[in-house]
Design a protein around this nucleic acid. Structure first.
Length: 512
RNA sequence: GGCGGGGUAGCUCAGUUGGUUAGAGCGCGGGACUCAUAAGCCCGAGGUCAGUGGUUCGAUCCCACUUCCCGCUACCA
């Protein structure tokens, strides 16, 4: 059985610095990557930057920089972000790299050879910043310049020779593909949007530009460069050493298991991308998940509203794991979510400090005071112990299906429930009243520690740093973070010594 | 304008293949305990499940209409 798992983030467009949306996509993808890895899968997690296009060319020009130099600088901030967010990505691809250019050109050649691309002429109003053409009706005039009603960006009249991809031809095959792959687009609400869009009729897609130079040249015609999306989407193949279809990477990981994207780029991933691939006779990816946006308060973050929450700043104040936990727990995955300092602080205090951090602390500290941090080899579970411990083995398959269905919220709700269970267990057993019954005392401590170990494993994909820290209580390390081990109720070594740990999450004291 | 999704406790959201007292977390109020980051545990407050009408023995869940919100899409050119 194939035991590989390929997950991607979008490649980010480095015309500006990373923001919360980038952080969110990457953290979500990291959650899946880490879970599948600890489940035993051979995971390839890809992220990177999409560096071509007119927008970049102009931004570089404004700063009087060579486009590549400009991209080098900004791409680096995204690469740095992978470290800041503690992403477990296996590769970082840039569309300016040769391996990618080779791959993109190959796709082009195949499409052209198969007659899927033809030369024609396009004229219309084009927005550089949106990378889209608009019809007259989609435009309005503000302050004397023509702008998109939708995005408000200015457009310019473009009239040029262009290559077209025969997208219209793929309308029916796409619909067939969607119906044969019911879960290709998630969440369902997004799938409906795509279906109705495709059903309403597809027009051929302009896939080359002549008006600027910053891009991958069309192999057969140096006057043209490839449309950024055809170029960019191909990155998912490039990182697998495509076009070498016999390469081990390609054979192992294509088709991709999951493209994590924001809802704003759904059409490119759910329509154009599978169409390009079908036309090139390459299997489309298995799933595209379009998540929502992270709003600040109830509004989109924007400079003019002054409500921008910079992920770097948040991490600086509250710590990375707090942000990761918040984004995964508090955002209903698939819908727009909301972040504010107040909500974040609430979440840190109640879930991370009070519930989880304090749980670890109280058990270890109790052990320190009563059994000198020694784990007895004489442990006898009673029915109550067995019952709480069995929550994990009992729900083992369910947890996996939560992940495989991208039901992140059910996953974390299960985790939080287990935190309650563990706290309640310790409370109800009242070990402080059992000091004369050493067998029982040791068993309660052992059971509590096992509960902590198990929940910590489930927390690992969410808050990896903290999890690793907690595992040190038991002298365990990353190699011991195996999903399967949550079924084992006696994983912690008997007749051993556990370690104290410091405060995991400091409570945030509100002064108002 | 068309299509789709949605309006459930102060807040964020679950849920009901239609059936006795509608759920969780946070927040709030009270209680018992003391191992712990004054954390944890227990109890509670109570929302006409957007509105109206219909189907049904019975609807928050089905149907129709109204209204509000959101997404996609189109057009009046």
């Amino acid at each position: 059985m194939k035991n590989n798992y390929y997950i991607t983030t979008p490649i980010y467009y480095p015309s500006a610095s990373p923001h919360m949306g980038h952080a969110y996509s990457s953290i979500i993808a990291d959650f899946f990557a880490r879970f599948k890895r600890m489940q035993g899968f051979n995971v390839f997690y890809l992220t990177g930057t999409d560096e071509h296009g007119q927008k970049i060319e102009r931004a570089a020009k404004e700063k009087k920089k060579d486009p590549l130099v400009f991209c080098d600088e900004i791409s680096k901030t995204f690469k740095d972000l992978t470290k800041t967010l503690n992403l477990s990505n296996d590769d970082f691809i840039r569309t300016t790299e040769n391996r990618h250019k080779k791959s993109a050109k190959n796709i082009w050649n195949i499409l052209e050879k198969k007659g899927e691309i033809y030369l024609s002429k396009y004229s219309g109003w084009y927005s550089v910043s949106d990378e889209a053409f608009y019809t007259e009706e989609e435009l309005e005039i503000i302050n004397g310049s023509k702008v998109s009603k939708l995005s408000g960006s200015t457009v310019e009249w473009v009239e040029e020779e262009s290559y077209f991809f025969k997208l219209s031809k793929w309308q029916e095959p796409l619909l067939k593909f969607y119906s044969e792959n019911q879960d290709f687009i998630l969440p369902i609400s997004r799938k409906n949007e795509v279906l109705s869009f495709v059903k309403s009729g597809l027009k051929d897609l302009s896939v080359s530009r002549k008006s600027f130079k910053w891009g991958i040249p069309v192999p057969s015609n140096k006057d043209h460069i490839m449309y950024v999306w055809l170029d960019a989407l191909t990155n998912y193949l490039s990182a697998l050493n495509y076009p070498d279809e016999n390469d081990k990477m390609y054979k192992s990981f294509w088709p991709a298991d999951l493209h994590i994207i924001g809802k704003d780029i759904l059409r490119f991933h759910a329509v154009y991308w599978p169409a390009f691939l079908l036309a090139a006779d390459i299997k489309p990816p298995k799933r595209v998940y379009g998540h929502g946006w992270i709003l600040s308060g109830d509004q989109k973050m924007s400079k003019s509203k002054g409500n921008i929450l910079d992920p770097l700043q948040i991490i600086d104040i509250y710590g990375l794991d707090a942000l990761r936990y918040y984004l995964i727990k508090e955002v209903s995955f698939g819908n727009d979510g909301n972040i504010s300092k107040e909500k974040l602080e609430n979440c840190i205090n109640s879930d991370l400090a009070n519930n989880y951090g304090n749980l670890c602390q109280r058990v270890v500290s109790f052990s320190e005071k009563n059994t000198n941090l020694k784990i007895s080899n004489n442990i006898t579970f009673n029915e109550e112990d067995k019952s709480v411990l069995s929550n994990y083995s009992k729900n083992y398959d369910k947890i996996i299906s939560f992940v495989d269905n991208q039901d992140i919220n059910s996953y974390i709700n299960f985790v939080v429930e287990q935190l309650f269970v563990a706290n309640k267990y310790f409370n109800d057993q009242e070990p402080w009243k059992k000091k004369s019954d050493l067998l029982r005392l040791n068993t309660i401590i052992y059971t509590s520690l096992e509960l902590i170990r198990k929940v910590t494993i489930l927390l690992y994909p969410i808050i990896p740093d903290t999890s690793k820290k907690v595992m040190k209580i038991f002298n365990l390390n990353l190699n011991d973070i195996k999903f399967e081990s949550i079924k084992n109720d006696e994983f912690i070594e008997k007749d051993s010594q556990i370690n104290k740990i410091g405060i995991l999450f400091k409570k945030i004291v509100k002064n108002d």
